[in-house]
Amino acid sequence: MRKFLPWIIIGAIVVIVIFWAMGIQNKALGFSQAVGKEWGNVDASYQRRNDLIGNLVNTVKGAADFEKSTLTAVIEARAKATSVTVDPSNITPEQLAQFQQAQSGVSSSLSRLLVSVERYPELKANQNFLKLQDELASTENQILTARTRFNESVQAYNGYVLAVPQKWFLGSYPEKPFFKSVEGADKPVEVKF
């Protein structure tokens, strides 16, 4: 029995190390899944905004005959934003920047549309328009919340995957990029009537 004791101890240590490594992999997988889920929430929030924009444009178009270029810009920005997709499991900083740039175009053209609407008092009083405007404000808040939660899940994921000793076992789990504000977001928005 004493002759096999060192082999038994070595075998037990190997089994413990294997289960420990599996635990590291499983925890990293859980963090990765959380990032994917939160990205799905970000995507759903943007999709809700894109769906609302169509209704808003139709309401504005029906109630006011004004600058076609503004409506066209909103419609084109919306189409461009919906064409950019990101795979949360293989997200890269470049993909995220492209997605943010497309969404920034929607925000910018939507702001111009809402400023243009200020010239039409009958539209501003329209209940459908007011309700859509409230829905858009609510959706923008949902987008902010979803982006914040996405960044929190990326922080937890990156913190786990990049820490030692996990880093040694998790070569197939690359660092994920954070959602950053678009360039110029630190400056106040100038609204002109």
Rank of each mutant, 00 (worst) to 15 (best):
R49W: 01
D43N: 15
G36R: 08
I143Y: 03
Q95D: 15
P165C: 11
I9R: 02
I18M: 10
V189I: 12
G62I: 02
V117Q: 05
P165S: 11
E152V: 01
I91Q: 09
Q25S: 00
L56D: 02
V86Y: 04
L5S: 13
S138Y: 06
G30S: 12
E190V: 15
R2W: 07
L123S: 11
K167T: 07
P174V: 02
N141T: 09
S89L: 08
Q155G: 04
L130R: 15
S32T: 04
P177K: 04
P6T: 07
N50Y: 03
S111M: 12
S172T: 08
V115D: 11
G11S: 12
S69M: 05
D186A: 12
P93D: 09
S83M: 07
T148I: 00
R2S: 13
T72F: 01
V189Y: 00
I8M: 14
R2E: 14
G40K: 12
N41Y: 10
N50P: 03
T72M: 08
Y46A: 05
K192V: 11
F99P: 09
F150Q: 05
R147W: 02
I13C: 13
N151Q: 10
T139F: 06
S116Q: 14
R2C: 01
V164D: 09
L162H: 01
T70G: 05
Y46H: 12
S172R: 10
R48F: 03
V42N: 03
V14Q: 02
R78N: 09
V14F: 07
G54N: 14
L130E: 14
